[in-house]
Design a protein around this nucleic acid. Sequence first.
DNA 1: TATTGTTATACTCTATAACTATA
DNA 2: TATAGTTATAGAGTATAACAATA
Lengths: 157, 157
Amino acid sequence: MDASTQTCARALLEITPAIVQAIRVRMRAARLHELSVPQFRTLAFIGRHPGCSLSDAAEFIGLTLPSMSVLINGLVEAGLVLRQTSLLDRRRVTLNLTGTGASVYAHALEGTLAWLSQQLEPLPEADKQTVLRAMEILRPQFLTNTDATPIVEATHA
Amino acid sequence: MDASTQTCARALLEITPAIVQAIRVRMRAARLHELSVPQFRTLAFIGRHPGCSLSDAAEFIGLTLPSMSVLINGLVEAGLVLRQTSLLDRRRVTLNLTGTGASVYAHALEGTLAWLSQQLEPLPEADKQTVLRAMEILRPQFLTNTDATPIVEATHA
DNA sequence: TATTGTTATACTCTATAACTATA
DNA sequence: TATAGTTATAGAGTATAACAATA
């Protein structure tokens, strides 16, 4: 293991949790949309993968199946997600955003992006490009399965 | 707000929570060191700022004072942190790592870094440099007060 | 028998509100 | 009166274990 890898890992371990904590604090403060970070990420995933299963979401988000089941339950009760038994395999569940879910997600995304953009705005253009490239580099290392889910039974009610 | 800022913000919002979730899962799986991500970050902060107060830690980590009080309580009970009343201002509390705390932190850091390095190792050298530079760019935007705490009453028992 | 998901239970994390002690 | 911290209480998030339904 070379030195640059270690240095890079150490920087990631120090900085990324601070960024996420800042996002969490901000999302909690903005009472407009009552979403936790995992709920937000789950809505995003379902939006990108209409008709996905519970397991798909759990694997992508990094939660156990029971935890995701509970999380989804909350989103269903809040009217943001539609959960239906799959017609092809009655063991499976089919997840879609409701109209409300899509708009709540869009609203939360907009608000969080606006705040995050404010934080980044003072940076020189070159720095923003560097950050963007870094994220693109890291994406495949940490986001598995981004587009592997078959799009079936999408209703997007 | 220009487009590159928005794009950059969107990428950060998508990728960093996934990285942190992966770190969380990994830290939980490695039962060697029973530390949550906030506990780990708090130990790191106290290690870098011996003799810091509860408020210092709370502000840096991004928790409320009661939440940090509870978190510290857990670390004290686990024998990782020494909490003493300040001699200069008896309202304040002075935090230091115990010997156990320092070694538990070092061990957790080592284990997590080893895993994280494995994830990064396949990347080309140039990409690692880009990621490292991105983290250095983001550090001052999201890590307040990194070195502002006066180092007093450090015992490091 | 294997797979998908849910329920039961418990523990951690975190917040707000109310309080104590010190300045 | 203001500040530093704790305690009380409650709610959300997550895990493991046990279960039910379907393939």
